[in-house]
């Protein structure tokens, strides 16, 4: 079993899973408690434009992703807060717009786009070392910003009006949170891909909320669950030679489902 660890790709895959779980554990909790799941899904899909941009410019698509996902996060935040466009409408529009831009740019790029499927559905077994360094850097940024603004984010998610009266620039802080979500999405893309990200972002956090009512503990628990699920999924996908991103999501969904069935059924068993 452990001899597979001697393969470089496997070590990279495990490192990628752990690095992804750190960002995913912290930011996923904010996504769940602030109830911005569909907005995050929107940022994730819109960032497909960044992949197109990377191909078009002939650079690593990850470098197109970072600015593009940040831009879509800010655009979504501003459209939903400042204009009269309803938030879900803004999300829907930018979601499709980003994807449309990506499709056009890939079409305009001569030749074909290698590993396009990797970006759409993830492939943790092919993460190169350069991406691991990028993930490490993004994790560092996320941890640093959350450490700095922990109280402020807490008040933003709990009670915006109070945060405003306390002198916090709520709009700016909200945009900062959306930017962190965008960076997390970039970090997760290689693991599960654009299409499946939202599950990875929300399921560990949502599960963790059943075990604690403390924000910080929720973050630790969902980091742990995220790492556990992705490494289990990774092992299964390697063993059975099936796509890793989808396997990780299936493992997670199965646990999630069992968890809820168990908690729905148990009270009846206990009473009987």
């Amino acid at each position: 079993m452990f001899e597979i660890l001697q393969y470089g790709f496997m070590r990279n895959a495990i490192m990628a899973a752990v690095l992804a779980s750190i960002a995913c554990g912290i930011i996923g909790v904010y996504v769940v408690v602030k109830k911005v799941t569909s907005l995050s899904g929107g940022i994730s899909h819109a960032s497909f434009g960044g992949i197109g941009l990377g191909y078009y410019l002939g650079v690593n698509p990850m470098y197109g992703l970072v600015p593009f996902s940040l831009l879509s996060a800010i655009a979504m935040g501003i459209t939903s807060k400042r204009t009269k466009v309803a938030e879900d409408t803004a999300i829907g529009i930018l979601w499709s717009l980003g994807m449309a831009i990506g499709i056009i740019l890939i079409y305009l790029t001569p030749g074909y786009a290698p590993d396009l499927m990797t970006y759409l559905f993830g492939n943790i077994l092919t993460v190169p070392l350069s991406d691991i360094y990028l993930m490490l850097a993004l994790d560092a940024v996320i941890v640093f910003v959350v450490y700095a603004y922990y109280k402020e984010f807490m008040s933003l998610c709990f009670d915006e009006e109070f945060a405003t009266v306390a002198g916090i620039n709520v709009e700016r802080l909200y945009l900062l949170l959306l930017c962190l979500i965008a960076l997390t999405i970039v970090l997760l893309i290689k693991v599960v891909g654009i299409i499946l990200i939202i599950a990875l972002l929300t399921m560990p956090a949502s599960l963790s909320s059943h075990y604690t009512k403390n924000l910080r503990k929720m973050m630790y628990i969902s980091m742990f669950l995220g790492a556990l699920f992705s490494i289990t999924g990774l092992a299964l996908s390697y063993t059975y030679d099936v796509p890793s991103g989808a396997t990780i999501i299936l493992v997670m969904s199965a646990v999630y489902l069992l968890h809820f069935v168990y908690h729905a059924v148990r009270p009846r068993i206990v009473r009987a």
Partner: peptide, 28 residues
């Protein structure tokens, strides 16, 4: 106006009252 399912204790809510006189990096 708060989000009442939020994972926060009474103690943390009251401490939050000090928020306006803090800044980034500075815990309670």
């Amino acid at each position: 106006s708060s989000n009442l399912d939020f994972p926060i204790s009474v103690w943390e809510v009251v401490l939050m009252g000090c928020l306006g006189h803090k800044g980034p990096f500075r815990g309670y």
